[in-house]
Design a protein around this nucleic acid. Structure first.
Length: 634
DNA sequence: AGCGATACTTAGAAGACGGGAA
DNA sequence: TTCCCGTCTTCTAAGTATCGCT
């Protein structure tokens, strides 16, 4: 089905939505201005009409009638009423969260052994034991903290008798449980085609029932409609709580949020919700408090929803606004480097880092509750080393710390003299464990930033610098005359420059070396094939009048061409993959790069958008794909 | 100012899927 | 047709930021 875009003169984002709708759905929307829009839709709807109408719905605002045609992938912009400040919706209806299946007790022939003796565990203890057994192949289970936390929490689930017996994790033998789990995974893989299809159908039913909600009469996908199943907490890095038991969430733990008029979702039989609220200033549909960290978790909409899309658009608009005043803000913090006030100096240096290196803000964290990681404001003296001179540069700051997700940030950066001197000053008579910016925190920093520009916070710099870098790199790296494969390599390289700036790392894939070798051997094979094809082509040219018609020669020439193209493509792919070994592009693509830059680039370069964004990404960025012209500038 | 609660974005890992080579 | 590997999708942890209270 062809996509059709109805454009209103005003292209502000809130007029926008893409979705599969029926004509009837369209009319249920509160369409304010119906002149251009409604007639356009009607024309389009009529052109798609195949079935005879059963009834004739009419538009709520103009009372025009139209047959109930079903339009697929119609992309529409319309004017919806803007809500007053803070209000996120007028109506919200959903079926509540999906609960994970109950625990299935182990069969009798699968046993846990303690100190070499078979031991039948109570249901609760058995379930938790299985959590551990399932993870035996994982490095986690070798870590002291993980084992201790697990054991402590496991004992809490045991009966008094079990607790008396099981006093040492080392004496526990989970091997049968582990094997049982592995068999189960294998069995699932080995299911017949039909059985797999049945599974799929069953899953689809769950998605159909729980995966969507009705928000202001739009059917929207929910991002995480399944409650998190119980298990062992897997923190990142040296997390002090790793291995603790994540308890099963009961309906009594769950708060439901929906509109007053809606029928609230029914709790599972014999249960009740913790609360049912009607708060339209928030976007979540359900929430619960998780037991390991005590934080609140939410069920929210999918990234392709209007609510999330609008927010995303706003984020990039703020970053673009920063573009127009970043020069004066830079002047400001460079001036502040000489301020008489210590706070201002610290703030200036922190901003210099955040702007130049795209560091995160660095909120303070509760000690001992999480892994020891830092961001800009929470940097400690031990995380930086100053070099008056290093590798031919003066005033070099060496950073070495663990950031978000315990990903290491290591960088040697030449800085301007004033910054260097200030850092020296901040470090004076401090211990390695002391804070570098002892007068500064993120609240202070953000307060200052918002006084410079409305909505400006520390993280906007990351968005701004990421997006502007992509735009610059794309301009620098791509030529209109390149072929698509070359253009894509350039795009990925631009993307990679951003990922490096933002320090988006990944563990090198386990199979990396192998797959790289495979690719290289394929390239070698292709080269041989090409050489052969070329020889044959020459031969055929030579004997063209004797043995072959001209077309045969043409065909061979085409084969050579095809072979050359494929070889080139593979070589580019190899370069791309090699450069990408430890770098993750996805995070920046999804969260930092204004999609309109990529869309405009695709239009300018005649690259199909599908080469850049997969289906999910296209859905998330539908707003940008739809509204962006080739001349867009970030 | 400091703090805890809250809401929402950003993040890498793991698991599921599916398309091409053998 | 099967199997393998890269890509997509899901999962949920870990950040940022703000607000209201003391």
């Amino acid at each position: 089905m062809k996509k059709r875009c109805v454009c209103l003169p005003d292209q502000r984002f809130h007029n926008y939505l893409t979705r599969t709708v029926s004509a009837r759905d369209l009319f249920r929307l509160k369409v304010k201005s119906c002149s251009i829009l409604k007639s356009e839709i009607l024309i389009f709807a009529r052109s798609l009409c195949k079935k005879k109408p059963k009834e004739t719905p009419s538009c709520s605002s103009c009372r025009r009638s139209s047959p109930p045609v079903f339009i697929s992938l119609l992309s529409v912009r319309w004017e919806e009423e803007r809500y007053e400040d803070g209000v996120k919706w007028k109506s919200l209806e959903h079926n509540g969260p999906y609960f994970p299946p109950e625990y299935q007790p182990l069969p009798d022939d699968v046993n846990f052994f303690y100190n070499g003796k078979k031991m039948k565990l109570s249901l609760a203890a058995e379930e938790v034991a299985l959590f551990f057994a399932q993870m035996l192949d994982h490095e986690y289970t070798t870590k002291k903290v993980f084992r201790e936390n697990f054991f402590k929490d496991w004992r809490k689930e045991m009966t008094r008798q079990e607790r008396l017996v099981i006093t040492d994790l080392e004496k526990c033998d989970f091997r049968e449980l582990h094997a049982f789990h592995k068999d189960k995974v294998e069995a699932r893989k080995a299911l017949s085609k039909e059985e797999k299809q049945d599974q799929k159908d069953a899953n689809q039913k769950i998605v159909d029932k729980y995966g969507y909600c009705l928000l202001d009469s739009h059917r929207e996908r929910i991002g995480n409609f399944k409650l998190e199943p119980p298990g062992l907490f897997r923190g990142r890095g040296e997390h002090p709580k790793q291995g603790m038991l994540k308890k099963r969430i009961q309906p009594e733990d769950v708060i439901i949020n929906c509109s007053k008029e809606a029928t609230p979702p029914a709790p599972p039989a014999g249960h009740h919700w913790k609360d049912v609220r009607h708060d339209n200033t928030v976007t979540w549909l359900a929430s619960w408090t998780e037991n390991v960290q005590g934080s609140i978790k939410y069920i929210m909409l999918n990234a392709n929803s209007k609510l999330k899309g609008e927010k995303d658009w706003e984020k990039y608009e703020v970053a673009r606004k920063l573009k127009s005043c970043v020069d004066s803000i830079r002047d400001g913090y460079l001036r502040d480097l000489k301020s008489k006030q210590m706070v201002a100096r610290q703030r200036a240096v922190a901003l210099y880092f955040i702007d130049k290196l795209a560091l995160r803000a660095g909120n303070e964290k509760e000690e001992g509750e999480t892994a020891d990681t830092v961001g800009c404001c929470s940097l400690r003296v031990e995380h930086i080393t100053l070099h008056d001179e290093l590798d031919g540069s003066e005033c070099v700051v060496e950073f070495d710390f663990l950031g978000k997700d315990s990903i290491r940030y290591y960088n040697k950066v030449p800085v301007i003299k004033k910054v260097f001197k200030n850092i020296k000053l901040f470090m004076e008579s401090k211990d390695p464990g002391d804070e570098l910016f002892d007068r500064l925190n993120t609240a202070l920093l953000n307060k200052h930033l918002s006084s410079l520009m409305p909505d400006l916070t520390a993280k906007v710099f990351r968005t701004y610098n990421a997006s502007i870098t992509l735009q610059q790199q794309l301009r620098q790296l791509t030529n209109k005359s390149d072929n698509v494969a070359e253009k894509l390599l350039s795009y990925n390289r631009a993307n990679r420059a951003v990922a490096i700036l933002c320090n988006h790392q990944r563990a090198p894939p386990k199979t990396f070396e192998q797959s790289m070798a495979n690719l290289h051997s394929k390239i070698v094979a292709r080269k041989e094939q090409l050489a052969l094809a070329k020889t044959e082509l020459k031969l055929r040219l030579y004997v063209r009048f004797v043995l072959f018609g001209v077309s045969m020669v043409d065909r061979k020439a085409a084969a050579v061409k095809r072979c050359e193209d494929q070889l080139l493509k593979m070589e580019l792919q190899a370069t791309d993959r090699e450069e990408n070994k430890q770098i993750a592009l996805g995070t920046s693509k999804l969260n930092y790069l204004d999609p309109r830059i990529s869309v405009a680039w695709c239009k300018n370069m005649d690259v199909p958008i599908e080469k850049i964004y997969n289906k999910t990404q296209r859905e998330k960025f539908a707003w940008a794909i739809d509204m962006t012209e080739a001349d867009f500038e970030f």
